[in-house]
Design a protein around this nucleic acid. Structure first.
Lengths: 239, 239
DNA sequence: TGTACATCAGTGAACGCGCGTTCACTGATGTAC
DNA sequence: TGTACATCAGTGAACGCGCGTTCACTGATGTAC
């Protein structure tokens, strides 16, 4: 039989291919992803995949975009669960907690977007940039809010170069120099959650009495204590 | 010619194989390491490698051991550059600076030992454990010194499980419960340097005005400020 | 309602490639007499 | 000093494997008349 009945075909083969790819990545990482093994698992032939993805790299790109989108959705959902003025720290904490939760739920997706690059794969930046930026926008946006309220205590943190074309640089609408400190603090906060989460994901973190979540919460509170100062006055909340 | 003259052979083929392997890992990561391509580059045939390494995994293990040893040497050299009592913070700073320096000099070695695991490779733990432990021993040892001096301010840090068989757990000679706090702080310090360094190595850190070193120094000082308190008295130094 | 036709998702064979590993072998080297 | 021999590092052919990608094809489906 050259082709099965339509009714027997995959209803949404493009999604099935990506799902199977994720399943295989979960087993052995992105560098060993193989079109033929995906096809084998789906009961189709390898060339059929070319009807949906122009080549192997295009599939990897689609996976990366999906991962950023999923991560970004979780980040924004966590932040938006605590709306309104006066709850900026709740938003910061929520994005932090959501960061680890998503990473533990999708360790290989996390490593695909924030870990070492896939050898031989060159990411198409213009395609990835929007979704990359959005994914960390919840964190950066919340820190920008605290900065606008005068509650950011950055100390003498070094500032990034104005023209460095980094991923979430364009998140800061203006080229406002005073926003550089938001950017610098965001990087430091990000590096701290990333450090702990990536050690935990790769199994290098030992068991803790109250679990890894407790250590992570401790680190989040350390971060808040270092970078955030109390609101200036109560009157701040009313107007 | 079945075999070249001895004089024309590699003087130390085992080392040449590892060096070539590192060169290739630097180009495209450890997961694509290939015995045949190593042999090609050295001008020998692939089966010759089996005189030195029983199979591909044995070569990877040798590379990992060398990486841990090199990293550990740098860590201990940095610490031992500031000997004597009263210089504990210098030792802590020195190991921190050396951590980033080694990682930037050997980014792929760093990722091989601290990054995501190589797919399909199962590390022989009993062989790796000694060199793994030693590599982080300079950091843990210095924090233990500060703890012994009563200068560790760990706050309410969560403690690890006593029986968690983690890599540098056995560094703490005794099963002394009071040492758990040393262990917990070491993990947190490690996660913070690892977070910043791994972002920098993978090219996810933007340019900074004074360079990445300034940001890293800022983070090291934050770490010291959080976890270390001033010496109790001057008299502490004299006896 | 029936028929001719265009579409296009998936097939199966084939391409050239690189891989890890095995095996019997060879021949320069070092050694014992 | 010369000779016979054991050693053993490296060779070359072969094994079976999986890979990405191309190509002409097929035949169920949807559509126009």
């Amino acid at each position: 039989m050259a082709r099965p009945f339509r009714a027997l075909q995959m209803p949404n083969l493009s999604e099935s291919i990506k799902n199977t790819a994720w399943r295989q990545i979960t087993e052995s990482g992105a560098s060993t992803l193989s079109l033929r093994s995906i096809a084998r698992e789906l009961g189709i032939t390898a060339p059929a995949i070319y009807n949906y993805f122009s080549d192997r790299d295009a599939l990897v790109t689609a996976l990366i975009i999906d991962a950023y989108a999923s991560f970004g959705d979780c980040q924004h959902a966590a932040r938006d669960a605590h709306p309104g003025p006066g709850r900026e720290i709740d938003r910061l904490r929520a994005t932090g907690i959501a960061y680890r939760k998503w990473a533990l739920n999708h360790p290989h997706r996390y490593m695909l977007i924030f870990g070492s690059p896939v050898p031989g794969y060159v990411p198409p930046m213009q395609e990835l940039l929007p979704v990359m930026m959005r994914s960390l926008g919840a964190l950066v946006g919340t820190i920008a809010e605290l900065h606008a309220l005068g509650r950011l205590d950055a100390g003498s943190v070094p500032l990034p170069l104005v023209d460095s074309g980094h991923r979430f640089f364009t998140l800061l609408e203006t080229a406002d120099e005073s926003m550089l400190v938001v950017y610098a603090v965001s990087i430091l906060v990000w590096s701290r959650v990333h450090g702990l989460v990536s050690l935990e994901i790769t199994g290098q973190l030992p068991q803790f009495v109250q679990g890894g979540a407790a250590l992570y919460r401790f680190e989040l509170e350390s971060i808040c204590r270092q970078f955030i100062r109390a609101p200036e006055d109560e009157e701040k909340i009313i107007p």
